[in-house]
Each structure stands twice: as C-alpha cells, then as structure tokens.
Design a binder for these strands. Structure first.
Length: 723
DNA sequence: TTGTTCCAGCTTTTT
DNA sequence: GCTGGAACAA
C-alpha cells in the first residue's frame, strides 16, 4: 500500500500533524478544517508507516456517532477491518475497563449502568427515604451536585464537613447515594469515568498493562474533556508523551456540564515536549461567513488564537432579517426554504438552528402548514422510552436481583396489586437493614405481617422474575428479550391503552426484540461477559437515535449545541435577540457570555453557502409580549458582511402584530429596535440600539451603505420607513 | 386506579 | 402561556 493515499489528500498543516513523530501533540483544528480527517489519517499512518499494530492504538471520542464514523473511515482508508483498534467514547472505554477489571474496581461482576434518567429516579427515591422535602431539595439539583463532584474526581469521603448547613446536607445525600449505588451494583455515567480513573490509579499492575498496550492515544474534541477525563488520559500516557489530541478552544460549548477548556492550556504545561499545530484552512464555508465568524470570536479573551481562511471565494453576504414577531420570523424562514427548494435545493441541505428547544415549535407549525417535511433533532430516544425502560428493567432484574432502580420501576408495572403501602414497607426494611429491595421483599414475606392478598401479589412478582430467569437459560439474547416482552404483561397493559399510543409502544417493544437480534455481541465482547449484560450496557450507553432514519428529504431543525460537527448549505440562525441568544442567564458572567459567543461562532460556521440571521422585534415568551433588543452578536459582525433582507412579496402580517408595533411606536414616541429608517446622507438603515432620552437620545443605526453609526436623534432627521 | 386540577418553572445534553 | 409532574378526588 502506498502512502500517497494517506498523505496525498492533506494540506501542509494536516500532513505535518499526521506524519509527526510520536510525541505529545495538540492539533488546534478550526471548524471545517478537516479535524476528523487528521485523526483518521494519523492512525492510518501509524499503522501503515510506523508499523504500529492496531491493537496498540486507542482513540477516544465523546459520542458514539463520532466513534462509529472514525472506525468506518479508518477501515475505508486501510481496507482492513479495524476490529482490534480501540475506538470508543470515554464512557464506552471506561465501561470496558470496568467490565474487564470489575474486581480491581471493586464492582460486582453484574454491575449495571444507569443512564441519567435512572439516576434521577434513584435520587428522588433516596430523598424520599431520607425524608428530604422534594421542593426544598430538587432532585435535579442534587443530581447536578453529585455529578459535578464526580466530574472533579471528588468522593463523599474526600469532602470535609462544611459549616454551611446546605452543604452538609448535600454531602449527606451524596454519601447515601454512593452507598445505595454500591449496594445495588449501579453505576451512573460520571461514576464510569471516576471508577475507571481510580482503577488505573490504584492498581499499578492494571495501569502498567494499559500503558504498555496503548502505544498511541488519540482524543477527539479535547476541549470538551472534563477534569476526570483528562486525569485519566494523563495516567494512561504518563511518562510516554504519546497523547495526540485534537480540539478547538473556540468551539468549547459544554463548560456548563463540566468541560474544562483549561485542559488545553494544562496540556501544554503537562507535556512540555508537545508540539502545537493549527489547522486554519477551512473547506466548508465562504470567505464572507468565515470573516464574519472570525470577527465575532475575536471578542473573546484568552483564546489560543486562530483565524479561519478559505480559498473558495467570498460568496454571498450574510442575510439579516428583522422580523416583526416570532410568527413572522418563522414565516420568513419557511418561505426562504421553499424558494430554495423551488430552485432545486435539497431540504436536507437547509437547517434551522436555535438556542433553545422551545423555539422549534413556531417553525414546526409553519412547516407543517406548508406541507414541508422536516425533522427535529433531540427529544426522546429509543432506549429512553418508558416501555423500553420497563422491559429492560425486567431484564436487569433477571441479571441482578439487587438492582433497586429496576425493582422499583417494575414491581407494580403492570399493576399487580402491590400498592404504595407494601412498597413503603419494603423500602423501610431495606433501609433499616441496608439490604436491597429484593432481599427486603423476601424478609417482608417471611415476617407474615402482610395481608394474604398483598403477600400473594408480592410472592407472585418475585416468582415471575425467578421463572423468567429460569426459562431464559440457554436462550439466545433476542429470545430472552422476546420472552420477557411476552411474559411480563407489558403488552397486555399497552393493549388496553386507548388510541395508537399503546400500539406504538407495543411496536417499540417488538423493535427491542429486533434490536437484540441485531446486537453485535462479538464485537463488544472482549470481556467474555454475559450477552444479556452487554446488551443492557449497550442500551444505557448508546441511547439510540431519536427517530428512525427517514429517507425523506427533510428540513433539519436543531439546537445550536446539537449542530456542532454538522454542516449545511443553507443555515438559518434564528432568534438572534438579547435574552434569548445570548441567553438571559449568561449575560452577567463573562465566562458564560464567551461560551455563548462560541456557540454563535459554531452556529455560523455550520453554513457552507448561505447564512441567514434573524431576530424578532417582538416575541411572545412565557405568555407575555417582550420587545428584545437584537443580539449583541449581530453588532459584532461588520456591516460589510451583512445585507438586510426584506420579504419580496407583501407579507401577510398578522393584524395584531402590526397594531402592536404601531402602538409601541406611539407609546415611546421614539424609534423601535429594528425599525427601518432613512437618512438624507447615509441612506437606508436599521435601528440597532437606543440610549438616553429627550434631547440626549441617541440611536445606533446600521446603514446599508456606510455601516453602523450613532446619531443624536434631535439632529438626525430620520425618516421612518415601513418595513 | 384513573382522571382531574393545580402549581412551579422556563437554556444548552451526551454518555 | 404552556407543559409536565404531583397531589388529590372519585
């Protein structure tokens, strides 16, 4: 195999990164600069040219999707199966290590992975048993607190009793939560990472083994790593400097969930012999889009410094549309998409990006009304559905009787006459004796204090699980799943549900059997573990797509966060308003505001050909009308890159909106933000900002020809133009 | 056990 | 102003 295939398609900077000798390496890869390509080709280079065995290479990503894509591309390039290559998410790899070394990690062999929904339910229940008031101790906050500690590598036992009563109680809950999880053999996502770190830290033999084995370690999206993930990477590469990380400080948008952009800076300290390579040539967007994005991100302090460029030409200007309200905004966007499609564009090349999920509705309504197919990203995923979780809970109980979360989930689902009283009693016994709910249920039955009916029901439940387990013995995985689906009574339960809702749930259960059949057991089973346990872990770690792949050509709707890593020919960045984007909750804090700005940068750099920015002059939010100012990010774009758009045809504006606008103009006796105005010398423009009052009142106007200017209202003879 | 009513809350999300 | 969850009544 000749190496031109590996280094041929690369530019200079990329080639430098790919062919560099083994050493600590930081590749700062701007948006659309071929980051994945560098990783893929680097790994191929090491195997083909450096003669590394695939077996000794580790590549870590954040999402299953990225891991899958990378594996596929490496196999394409090398034309061999990359089976022995370890490519996976941080959580997936951590899970693998814990399965292999359960004993050293002080975990039971049958430990089960909880997803965040499971975790929340466990916490809720825990708060109840500890007699904490839900309203004073919101389970979500507790969950956030616990995960934040774990992300920092802090166990309850590391923490000092604080003077603060709130802190002290939190610590108490954290401690109880850890105990509960240990007792039930439950591991949450943060725990996977923390345990994997402790496994390496506390077991020199294990650490040594993996340090020897992984001669090359690669990390994707390094700016998104949290404290514990980075600590884990450092352990693994300690003294070898064989860490190759790719990331972009300008695209760090997950600080709020523990990602430490600082890890990029620390990397340079911890690996003094590192090399930094910047990838700045962009292969995605037009020159105009890149320049505008560069200008925006330049407002952030403390960047590593990077400026995207392209040789693809300037392209169209960025379009700015000031809508009257959110209805008009949606109408405008949908009309533009229709025009795009009429001119032969694909719907799937068009994306509507927003800051918060709630914004999707107005667009969905307008798309629906015009019969335009669309797809909303986010929302319920397959393995998150209640019916699926119920079925999985039965399977988990079969595998591990002490899985309290699953026990509680299905003890009375479908209803089998075990009421709140009985469940309460079981909980009490479990708490008092520090045993699992399953064990407590047996104790309760033996006490013979229950009514015959309740005792029968409870015995029936225990027997059901035992019988299912017995019958499942020797069956193939999918047969086990089918057995459970058929025998646990869920199908009957959903049959009774009215309308198609129940039917859909039954279909999903059938789909679960199918998923089990397709589950590639061998690939994930280096650990020689039970097939069922692997499948259950798979379900927790890979929650699946929210929707089945539809082959229809659809407009794409998603949040800015979920757009990261994607690209579209036509992009609408909507709701560019203060309070929405940047979010109200971020405006008082420089660090958070900068993260919003990075989000804006990410959003803009999704666009390949055309970018539209829209904002509404009035928006119904939380039931009341608000008149937000245009987003500060709009002001950060030099006017030369912008072009104001108006609807070509007369817009059928909702009457109320026009009236509201007229009323507000009269009320303030002044100009409104976004108001189109004319000036004798400067021509036509749009009001961006106002300040002062009376004779001191000034307005900032973005003129089409001459750009942004501040004018004293008293002197500038402005003409109000109808927009 | 189900249906109703009331009430808080209201960024972003993968694993 | 809407939504989801919890508390309550029947």
């Amino acid at each position: 195999m000749d190496i031109t295939k590996i280094i041929g398609p690369l530019n200079d900077a990329q080639r430098q990164a790919v062919t560099a000798p083994s050493q600590a390496m930081l590749v700062l890869a701007g948006a659309g600069s071929g980051k994945t390509r560098v990783l893929v080709h680097r790994i191929a280079w090491q195997i083909q040219v450096e003669g590394e065995s695939a077996h000794s290479i580790l590549a870590v990503t954040f999402t299953n999707k990225a891991a899958k894509e990378m594996r596929g591309r490496i196999e394409d390039l090398l034309k061999v199966s990359a089976q022995t290559l370890w490519i996976g998410t941080f959580h997936g790899i951590a899970h693998r290590l814990l399965r292999r070394h359960a004993k050293e990690a002080k975990l039971p062999e049958t430990f089960q992975v909880m997803d965040s929904g499971d975790q929340l339910r466990v916490i809720k229940r825990l708060l109840n048993t500890l007699n904490f008031d839900d309203s004073k101790w919101p389970p979500r906050e507790v969950q956030w607190y616990i995960n934040a500690q774990k992300d920092e590598g802090i166990r309850a036992r590391h923490m000092v009793e604080a003077a603060d009563i709130h802190q002290r109680q939190m610590l108490r809950i954290y401690r109880a939560y850890e105990e509960l999880c240990d007792r039930s053999g439950l591991v949450d996502f943060a725990e996977l990472l923390l345990r994997a770190h402790e496994l390496l830290r506390d077991n020199p033999a294990v650490l040594d083994f993996y340090q020897q084995r992984f001669r090359q370690v690669h990390v994707d999206e390094f700016q998104d790593t949290n404290t514990i993930q980075y600590a884990w990477l450092r352990l693994l590469t300690d003294g070898k400097d064989n860490l190759f990380v790719v990331g972009d400080d300008d695209q760090s948008i997950y600080g709020w969930r523990g990602a430490k952009i600082e890890n990029i800076y620390s990397f340079q300290k911890h690996y003094p012999n590192h090399q930094v390579i910047k990838l700045e040539q962009n292969y995605r967007s037009t020159g105009t889009i890149l320049k505008a994005a560069n200008k925006i991100i330049a407002n952030n302090a403390g960047r590593m410094g990077k400026e995207l460029w392209t040789d693809a030409g300037e392209g169209d200007k960025i379009s700015l549309y000031a809508a009257f309200n959110e209805q008009d905004e949606a109408y405008f966007v949908v009309e533009r998409i229709r025009a795009w499609v009429n001119e032969g564009g694909l719907r799937s090349d068009a994306a509507i990006l927003y800051r918060s999920n709630a914004q999707s509705r107005q667009f969905e309504e307008k798309l629906m009304a015009t019969g335009t197919p669309y797809r909303v990203y986010g929302g319920l995923r397959f393995f998150d559905r209640a019916e699926i979780k119920n079925a999985l809970a039965y399977l988990r109980l079969m595998s591990n009787r002490h899985d309290d979360a699953s026990f509680e989930r299905v003890i009375n689902t479908p209803t089998r006459g075990i009421g709140a009283k009985a469940i309460d009693d079981i909980r009490c016994i479990a708490r008092d004796q520090s045993i699992s709910l399953w064990a407590a249920a047996i104790v309760l039955i033996n006490q013979r204090t229950m009514t015959a009916r309740a005792a029968n029901a409870l015995t029936g439940f225990l027997e059901l699980i035992k019988n299912l387990d017995k019958q499942a013995e020797g069956l193939a995985l999918y047969e086990k799943v089918r057995l459970v689906v058929e025998k646990c009574g869920l199908v009957e339960l959903y049959q009774k549900e009215k309308m198609d809702k129940g039917e859909e749930k039954i279909e999903n259960l059938e789909e679960l059997v199918n998923a089990a059949r397709l589950f590639d057991f061998d690939q994930e089973n280096e650990e020689n573990l039970g097939e069922l346990d692997m499948f259950l872990a798979h379900a927790a770690l890979e929650s699946g797509d929210s929707q089945a792949d539809d082959f229809e050509d659809c407009v794409q709707l998603m949040t800015l966060h979920s757009a990261k890593g994607l690209e579209f020919k036509l992009v609408f960045l909507v709701g560019m308003e203060e309070g929405l984007f940047p979010s109200q909750q971020s405006v008082d804090d420089v660090a958070r505001l900068e993260e919003e700005r990075r989000l804006c940068y990410v959003g803009m750099t999704r666009a390949m050909k055309q970018l539209y920015l829209t904002y509404a002059e009035s928006r119904r939010l939380y039931g009341r009308e608000s008149y937000p100012r245009p987003s500060r990010f709009l002001r950060e774009i030099p006017a030369e890159f912008l072009q104001e758009v108006r609807m070509r045809a007369t817009v059928s504006r909702p009457v109320t909106a026009v009236q509201a606008k007229a009323a507000s103009l009269q009320a303030t006796g002044s100009y409104k933000l976004g108001q189109r105005v004319g000036h004798a010398k400067f021509g036509e423009g749009v009001v961006l900002q106002m300040e002062g009052s009376g004779a001191q009142e000034r307005v900032q106007i973005n003129f089409k020809q001459v750009g942004v200017k501040w004018l004293m209202l008293a002197y500038a003879k402005l003409e109000v133009l109808q927009g």
